[in-house]
Amino acid sequence: MKPIEELTREEAGRIRYILTDIDDTLTNKGRLPAEAYSALWRLHDAGFSVIPVTGRSCGWCDLIAREWPVKAVVGENGAVVYYLDENDHLQVFTHPSVASPDVHEKLQAVREACLAAVPGSRVAKDQFSRVYDLAIDFAEEPPALPLSDVERIREVCESMGAHAKVSSIHVNAWFGDYDKLAMTELFLREVLGEDDPLGRVMFFGDSPNDEPMFAHFPVTCGVANVVPFADHMNHLPAYVAPLEGGYGFAAAIDVFLRLRGL
């Protein structure tokens, strides 16, 4: 990982889309700092399309698409995209492989198995606004669980046929052949008409569950809290910000916009 200050003018000059994780990439200790929100507005006002890519719930995505300065929000690990059309009407683009109507019964079984297998595990508090996935909280609310428990939760999910990803705060489980990267590319292609986004995307993330995005896009940046995970990742971001979370995101956007003369 190179310092974000080494981002080249040539790389920055090709970027049209800023993709970013939310938790611990835009936030610090669960809050969105003013610096990060200001950076989103600076990007929006400069004409860039900002697309958060998150494991957060459909309910969160509805609010973010309506009220944040973003082009769209990829939610529930790639199940859906919420966005405003040219008339500012909210639209929902759903991945074609989302699970059948019995998904809630299957997720309920996974939920019960996880809670039984790992004492102290609990369902995320935003579960009430989820449509397609299950989030088991291990670090958003205290007490934080040890990594051995987190791995056990992931194993239980996968043993029951679910996909499972570990974020910085949740283990997300779902049924359906999609993920953040697949849905992002599908949305860019089918809705935004972007046939070859590789050189036009810059992605920001903070943890191992962002590896597929780090591996796929050439121009990526981790905020500083990705550094402790470096020895456990096969694909690191190309660049790293000097600060953690939203402060690091804001610092990196300062560099990016300065290279663009903005």
Rank of each mutant, 00 (worst) to 15 (best):
P33F: 08
A34Y: 10
A36Y: 10
A36V: 01
A36W: 04
A36L: 02
Y37V: 01
Y37R: 04
Y37T: 02
S38N: 11
S38Q: 12
A39N: 04
L40M: 07
L40R: 01
L40A: 06
W41N: 12
W41V: 04
R42D: 06
R42I: 10
L43A: 05
L43M: 08
H44Y: 14
A46L: 11
A46Y: 10
G47Y: 08
F48E: 15
F48Y: 15
S49H: 09
S49L: 11
V50R: 02
I51C: 03
I51S: 08
P52F: 06
V53Q: 01
V53I: 14
V53G: 02
G55F: 01
R56S: 04
R56D: 13
R56A: 03
R56P: 02
C58G: 06
G59T: 07
W60E: 05
W60I: 00
W60T: 01
C61W: 01
C61E: 01
D62M: 03
L63S: 03
L63F: 10
L63P: 00
R66P: 07
E67G: 00
P69A: 09
V70Q: 06
V70G: 01
K71D: 08
A72M: 00
V74I: 07
V74T: 04
V74L: 09
G75R: 02
E76W: 05
N77Q: 08
G78P: 03
A79K: 10
A79P: 02
V81C: 03
V81K: 06
V81P: 02
Y82N: 00
Y83E: 02
Y83W: 14
Y83C: 00
L84T: 05
D85S: 13
N87E: 15
N87G: 11
D88L: 14
H89G: 05
Q91N: 10
V92H: 03
V92I: 14
F93I: 07
F93A: 04
T94C: 05
H95F: 03
P96V: 03
S97W: 10
S97P: 08
V98S: 00
A99T: 15
S100R: 14
S100T: 14
P101L: 06
D102A: 07
D102N: 13
D102C: 09
V103C: 14
H104I: 12
H104L: 13
H104N: 13
A109Q: 15
A109L: 15
A113F: 13
C114L: 12
C114A: 13
C114K: 05
C114H: 06
L115I: 13
L115K: 10
A116H: 15
A116F: 12
A117D: 11
V118D: 10
V118R: 06
P119A: 15
G120N: 09
S121K: 11
S121I: 12
S121L: 05
R122H: 07
R122V: 13
R122C: 08
V123K: 05
V123R: 03
V123P: 05
V123W: 09
K125H: 15
K125N: 13
K125Y: 11
K125E: 14
D126F: 06
Q127I: 03
S129T: 08
V131W: 01
D133S: 12
D133N: 10
D133P: 07
L134N: 05
A135F: 08
A135N: 07
I136V: 14
I136F: 02
D137W: 15
D137L: 11
D137H: 14
